[in-house]
């Protein structure tokens, strides 16, 4: 089913993040990061944030990180971002 959907979106050039439920991550310089379609927050502190997404756990490392907005499908983090990593 997953492969079929993948092919279908490729064929019809549909936005992947909607059909495949993938996270869309927008990085503005190294000051702000927006994640659409996230699942949940696993860890939250001012230096490390771990966010669960359907593509795996996203690790954000930086200094003085704060959550600017948070809604059901959208999260915005601001601060000095030094590292982004997908775990697992």
């Amino acid at each position: 089913m997953g492969i079929f959907k993948d092919h279908l979106t490729e064929l019809l050039s549909l936005p992947k993040e909607i059909l495949l439920n993938l996270p869309q991550i927008i990085l503005t310089g190294r000051k702000e990061i927006s994640i659409e379609n996230y699942k949940s927050i696993i860890e939250y502190s001012d230096t490390t944030i771990r966010i669960n997404t359907s593509s795996g756990v996203l690790l954000i490392v930086g200094n003085s990180l704060t959550l600017k907005h948070m809604t059901t499908e959208y999260i915005t983090i601001v601060g000095g971002i030094t590292k982004l990593e997908f775990l697992g």
Binding site: S40, I41, I42, E43, Y44, D46, T66, L67, K68, H69, M70, T71, T72, I75
Partner: peptide
């Protein structure tokens, strides 16, 4: 973190979290 997730999933808008 669990509190934040639960809040977000219930559709409550929160901002400027420090």
């Amino acid at each position: 973190e669990r509190f934040l997730n639960m809040t977000a999933h219930r559709g409550i808008y929160i901002w400027d979290i420090n």
